[in-house]
Write a protein that binds this DNA or RNA. Sequence first.
DNA 1: AAGGACAGCAACCGCCCAACC
DNA 2: CGGTTGGGCGGTTGCTGTCCT
Length: 357
Amino acid sequence: MGRHSCCVKQKLRKGLWSPEEDEKLFNYITTYGVGCWSSVPKLAGLQRCGKSCRLRWINYLRPDLKRGMFSQQEEDLIISLHEVLGNRWAQIAAQLPGRTDNEIKNFWNSSLKKKLLKQGIDPTTHKPLNIVTEPQYHHHQSSIMKEEEKTVLNRDSSETLVLPSSIQIPFSVSSSSQGSSSLAAGSDSNNNQFDQNNNNGYDPLALFESSLCRMSGLNQLSSGFGFNMSSIMPGLITNSTMTELSSENKSGWGISSSNSLSSYVQPGGCQISNNNSLMVDPLLYQFQFNGDVKNEEDYYQMMKTATVAAAAGLSSWEEDGGGQILNQSSIDFTATYPLTSLSEDLSPANFDAFNHM
DNA sequence: AAGGACAGCAACCGCCCAACC
DNA sequence: CGGTTGGGCGGTTGCTGTCCT
């Protein structure tokens, strides 16, 4: 196992950085920008390896870093994201502006983990700690399901998918997600405006993408919190190319698409664009499924409904309650959300609470 | 006051992966 | 196509300050 060449050079300094070293690195990077880290020590006059410089810059010297305690909202978001992403600290950090992966990792290990344990929650699984030998029952709307009753669905693609026997969708968002990813103009049931030019909006796609990721049990996330439909329904989605047009155009928490959105392509090949060519988002097609999700079959049916509709390339439809997506670059959510059948967490009341954060 | 235990955090280590040659 | 290199990431270490006995 070869070590990095920069680490074997004995004369390089290690350990804590002195103020003088910080100054040298800061001055160099602010003057010349971030480039080849391996050449930074020599050019900046530092007896450090490039990796050490990079780390120092990213975790400490970067001017856009937020310092100080984590807010309650940040804390909630970290817990929420950890539940979805696990120990993918870099991905978690990407959703918290001004925070580094190292900082979040340390915060998790030193504080949040213990906090959850204290609350009787397993910090790894985010499920209650009480281990019992009897079957676990989870209340889910009107249905009660046995944890043990896991269903294996065989699909025509000959792939097997094991779904969780209950669908629980804990959800929390931070205020930083508001507006930052508003994909379209429109208003919600409370006439709260969200549009492409101001910061009052929120991105319903991000919300459902995240929720669906949780529901899938696969923790399958693609960049910008896109939901990789193809991983759930590979037999039905043929074009599973995720196109990232630019970092500015991705939809998702903390990634702005507000000003320059020209096209948005979902995993699965369906896209929303400004040129009216195709306006299908498979994630939104879940609205078409009005049944109660009581078990895996319902869940599977819902996903199938969403996917088939998306694959059909429909250009518009009406969601339950009157909201609709038209063949233009706006999404109008005037309807109440029919997804209460999925989880209390997605009830209209919680949507309102979310919107007023 | 001394020193042991503990918590918080900065930094390092080792591995992985992509780009390059 | 295999080796090398650099960047990125998660796990871990070890230093430092604080608390407790």
